[in-house]
């Protein structure tokens, strides 16, 4: 099986959210459903010195969709089998005709990938644009990125080109689910497990 995955260059990412909105347009998503979410992680402090200020702060963005994990947390908990990992490309996809809308996958996924659609009564999520991929195209989000900070390819290729990093704060340890991603960290990036920052945009993800 070829396992496809995403490359996320957080050093380039300016948090513009074009990937998110291009996806929402292509997939015709409602306002509150986001297959791709952009997390802003920020922290640090300021020191006053007389009339002046000295910052020691950080912030950076991580654009996260579904990581199409090697050991996805969403699949084993699904009672209907709607949530499944495709054998041909390793993409994790929900069969919306089977899904009963129990939200177990959303509870289990540590990346917020399954996005419940209350109007439709079932789970939805990033499917890696597998139909486009089958045609030799990249997912819509990847092709949309103004800064070329996203890529999508077989994981072997991505790891060869960009290395093995798949965890950085505020993501969970990669050992939990084996996410099929490679991250190029921002210079401000904090290591996985860091708790000195906070999620700056909780209502946007």
């Amino acid at each position: 099986m070829t396992q496809y995955g995403f490359y996320i260059d957080s050093s380039k990412c300016t948090g513009c959210k074009t990937c998110q909105l291009a996806c929402k347009d292509y997939k015709d998503l409602d306002v509150d459903v986001n297959y791709r979410r952009i997390y802003e992680y920020a922290g640090g402090s300021w020191q006053a010195d007389g009339d002046t200020w000295q910052p020691s702060i950080f912030s950076y963005y991580l654009s996260i969709a579904c990581n199409h994990c090697a050991a996805p947390a969403c699949v084993p908990v699904c009672p209907s089998g709607a949530m499944h990992k495709r054998s041909e490309d390793g993409l994790v996809v929900v069969d919306t005709d089977t899904c009963i809308g129990c939200k177990s996958c959303a509870m289990a996924c540590p990346y917020g990938a399954p996005q419940y659609n209350a109007r439709k009564g079932h789970m939805t999520k990033c499917d890696g644009c597998y139909e486009r991929v089958a045609e030799g195209l990249k997912p819509v989000c990847v092709e949309s990125c103004p800064l070329r900070a996203l890529d999508f390819a077989p994981m072997e290729e991505l790891r060869e080109r960009y290395g093995n990093l798949a965890e950085v704060a505020p993501l969970p340890s990669a050992s939990l689910t084996g996410p099929s991603i490679v991250i190029k960290p921002n210079r401000n990036a904090r290591p996985v497990g860091d708790t000195t920052g906070s999620l700056a945009n909780p209502k946007e993800v």
């Binding site: 699904c78 009672p79 809308g101 419940y116």
Partner: peptide, 25 residues
């Protein structure tokens, strides 16, 4: 009532033996 699609509730048994939720139900 917890289900988004209650009419599909029988599908909850499709992964009997593999999913604890299927087993529970």
């Amino acid at each position: 009532l917890h289900l988004g699609s209650p009419l599909r509730a029988p599908n909850a048994l499709l992964r009997l033996g593999s999913s604890w939720l299927s087993n529970e139900i």
